Deep mutational scan, measured.
Amino acid sequence: MASQGTKRSYEQMETDGERQNATEIRASVGKMIGGIGRFYIQMCTELKLSDYEGRLIQNSLTIERMVLSAFDERRNKYLEEHPSAGKDPKKTGGPIYRRVNGKWMRELILYDKEEIRRIWRQANNGDDATAGLTHMMIWHSNLNDATYQRTRALVRTGMDPRMCSLMQGSTLPRRSGAAGAAVKGVGTMVMELVRMIKRGINDRNFWRGENGRKTRIAYERMCNILKGKFQTAAQKAMMDQVRESRNPGNAEFEDLTFLARSALILRGSVAHKSCLPACVYGPAVASGYDFEREGYSLVGIDPFRLLQNSQVYSLIRPNENPAHKSQLVWMACHSAAFEDLRVLSFIKGTKVLPRGKLSTRGVQIASNENMETMESSTLELRSRYWAIRTRSGGNTNQQRASAGQISIQPTFSVQRNLPFDRTTIMAAFNGNTEGRTSDMRTEIIRMMESARPEDVSFQGRGVFELSDEKAASPIVPSFDMSNEGSYFFGDNAEEYDN
């Protein structure tokens, strides 16, 4: 783990906690998980779902989305002020799938948001429990990260689609708070800032007046979040320049895209947490497990152990491969979309394939898809080993990566060399080191050039047997250095459309 220093740990961010010791953190995270579980059980009762239907990941996603929508204050306010045809701002819903006479049927349900809020609060001892809501947002974000390569979004903001390893959390809503900021990748933060800068260039009043003052505060806050992700002084200094700019424009845009590229080699610290679907927490609570009393951590053995003992089902389209669908969801559960496939294969105990080789589309089923041909199958979400999630980018030494994705962002704290394609990355730096950030740029390029592919990161860190909950005997895996390590390699994943 990167030293926490003055930073709060993510469990504290996750639970809005002030400084807590490890036991208190485990208890408050457990409380959050228990609340999600209780809410899910109650919703299944309301909807009269069978046990099997309640364990269907598509039903879980609909129920999670309903509660997130019920608590989305800004959108609710907007919907009330701008009524649109056929949208009731006070209601929320989605597809629920039921097994009827041996076939899967889709039923569109509609609930009062007020009623959903009441059920959620009741499951969370009367609190709004925003930490639990954020947790579900991060699960949705991790699922998107594993399912889609955001080529269009990258290109629109002047970045290269091969930089997708920097895009963790790119679909997280803005209201996801400190826990959300911690899991956002460098590219995601750059993209958010670039969008602001572009608006400022096109709209003279963007930075002016009372609204402009708020915009400015948001801009500086985002700059500080991004600065905190960088691990070298030169990158941090460049972020200070971007933040202090009187009138952010093209120079800042250039600096930010430069920094994003540099992060492929001088990786930023991005938190990883295993956020599971509500249909995993519900049955665990129903079986009598007391998360608050037992304590829970999002970055240790607990999620692995929970998945070892969970039964989750998914709808499967006619030509999809259930094992591939399982891999997709497994990666999402562990926030591992940008991790090295060699490491993932070792931990999972079966070969993890790149996205383009998977015969599976996303987990969600569109409303126009034919239910007649839908089957369902068990998702295999178990693992051979477990490993500690990392909050750091690993040290800054790398190795060759593949054509589709030119770097990785480690999820697990496991000893290995970190793949990246130096030639491709360095070719993108057209040696432009003039301007006010020239000395920093020169320094950053120097550090990137001296990074050695064969150097090892996370020295001495290994994986653990599932029986080793105290992480007492690390097993340090050895990897084939020459092997392909990137998930979005030469990829044809669908595009994420909101």
Rank of each mutant, 00 (worst) to 15 (best):
129 A>W: 01
18 E>C: 12
198 K>E: 12
410 P>Y: 04
71 F>I: 07
182 A>I: 04
110 L>Y: 06
390 T>I: 13
195 R>K: 13
291 F>E: 07
164 C>R: 05
165 S>R: 01
330 W>K: 03
128 D>S: 06
178 A>T: 14
105 M>I: 15
71 F>K: 14
309 N>P: 09
169 G>S: 14
171 T>I: 10
163 M>I: 13
373 T>P: 11
113 K>L: 03
270 V>T: 15
194 V>A: 15
173 P>Q: 15
60 S>H: 04
282 G>I: 06
34 G>D: 11
367 S>A: 15
497 D>P: 02
273 K>T: 07
377 S>G: 06
85 A>Q: 11
49 L>F: 14
235 Q>L: 05
207 W>F: 13
258 F>H: 06
146 A>C: 08
143 L>D: 02
109 I>V: 14
176 S>E: 12
129 A>M: 12
14 E>C: 04
182 A>V: 09
449 E>L: 12
249 G>I: 08
70 A>F: 03
125 N>W: 00
444 I>Y: 08
295 G>C: 11
257 T>F: 14
177 G>L: 02
458 F>C: 07
14 E>Y: 00
4 Q>I: 10
257 T>V: 15
241 Q>M: 09
481 M>K: 10
437 T>A: 07
206 F>S: 14
31 K>M: 15
85 A>V: 07
447 M>E: 12
16 D>A: 03
80 E>M: 01
413 S>N: 11
190 V>W: 02
349 G>E: 11
118 R>H: 09
449 E>P: 04
79 L>S: 07
346 F>V: 03
189 M>L: 14
225 I>W: 06
288 G>Q: 08
122 Q>G: 04
432 N>D: 13
345 S>I: 09
232 T>M: 04
203 D>R: 00
291 F>M: 15
212 G>S: 07
88 D>I: 02
272 H>W: 07
309 N>G: 11
218 A>V: 12
351 K>S: 06
150 R>G: 10
46 E>R: 06
188 T>Y: 05
423 T>D: 01
294 E>V: 10
417 N>D: 15
208 R>W: 13
252 E>K: 13
450 S>K: 05
153 A>G: 09
133 L>V: 14
467 S>K: 10
257 T>R: 00
438 S>Y: 10
213 R>K: 12
